[in-house]
Design a protein around this nucleic acid. Sequence first.
DNA 1: GTTTGTGAACCGTTTCACAGCA
DNA 2: TGCTGTGAAACGGTTCACAAAC
Lengths: 217, 217
Amino acid sequence: MPGKARVPRPTAERLSVYLREAARRAGAGQLKVSSREHGAAAGASDAQVRKDLAVLGSLGQPGVGYDAEGLVDAIRGVIGVHERWRAVLVGAGNIGRALASYRRLADEGFEIAAILDRAPSVVGRTVAGFEVLPMSSLPDVVRRQSIGIGVIAVPREAAQEVADALVAAGVRGILNFAPQRLEVADRVPGVDVDFRSALERLALAVSERAPEPRGRG
Amino acid sequence: MPGKARVPRPTAERLSVYLREAARRAGAGQLKVSSREHGAAAGASDAQVRKDLAVLGSLGQPGVGYDAEGLVDAIRGVIGVHERWRAVLVGAGNIGRALASYRRLADEGFEIAAILDRAPSVVGRTVAGFEVLPMSSLPDVVRRQSIGIGVIAVPREAAQEVADALVAAGVRGILNFAPQRLEVADRVPGVDVDFRSALERLALAVSERAPEPRGRG
DNA sequence: GTTTGTGAACCGTTTCACAGCA
DNA sequence: TGCTGTGAAACGGTTCACAAAC
């Protein structure tokens, strides 16, 4: 098994949607799902869906569709969610608390294992059932709790420093909620979730469609 | 002025970064910023930056760079942030509260003007300084408070319904935090912020780089 | 000398179209 | 007949390279 196929970024994003859809339909008792059905759910063409799913191998049956359960397993396999991903959350502010309280992530194979914060006033408090730990405990937490992912939910100014600490502690990937581009070693992939940027993109899209904010049509 | 240049999606995302960078440097007293400097901040090549900024017109000076203040204005102009974008937030759960408390958005020209929720137990309570309003007040709120953007921060199951209500109420764009693809009229653009999907993309990237979760070293 | 603006080549993704299988 | 898998064509975005401007 020399190397898994690399998955293009746009495809990776859609796989996430297919996973949801297949899981939902499987849960509803549907055995097979066609590329057209997936396309409707993901906003993609059926051809696109087939191309995307081809990275998983040939697990569709002509004339029938894709096995719902099989798809779930296959996509989870590619994503690497055979078991669980354990994450450490740095930052017990608004975003951090919201994430920690978002229990549904656990259903998808992601689990927050610990919360850390730099502020002494927060350390020791209980947030979403976790005792907030000091930053100094990061290396121990990552090692002892088999943490794979670090989540950055701190203000922009502190983000790079936290990223460095996470990499040093040995996490294998970083999810970044701070509006700041991170410099990290190539071997540690990072994904940004930036809703300020999202808002701006939205504003731009709105402006493109309706140049003048008219009073009311 | 028949039509503004349409901005490719990847470019739109980077414009957001350039905006931040230009604003920061302008604030620090720097007058001109070169494409190389922007590139370093955004993780893009200098050529890429120039191509991106070309959608704003020719506002760079050869041999000198881009005027920092001018860039801020130009990007804000394209995004449509001359004045303020006012948003209504639907859903006073974890994510909703985090967003409502995230005051820095206001500095960037985005302002949450009202919070609504469906649950009677939440309506009337105060969240981040807002009295939570019932869903029935949506049309009034949008009209009377000149709301441009609707923000969906409700569970997946309710997302489409809320989207329909927002469109009916007259919002011009939707920012969606629910992990659900929305069906909305073409004239109302939508942008998704989906951190579950982001986590999965991250997990996939990690898996691709290190197929086997080895013990250590 | 430095840096922009931009056509042209390049590359990856999407769409198309259809052969092959159920 | 219905639906998948997949080469081939089409598309869009990125990189390259350089003339023009400071």
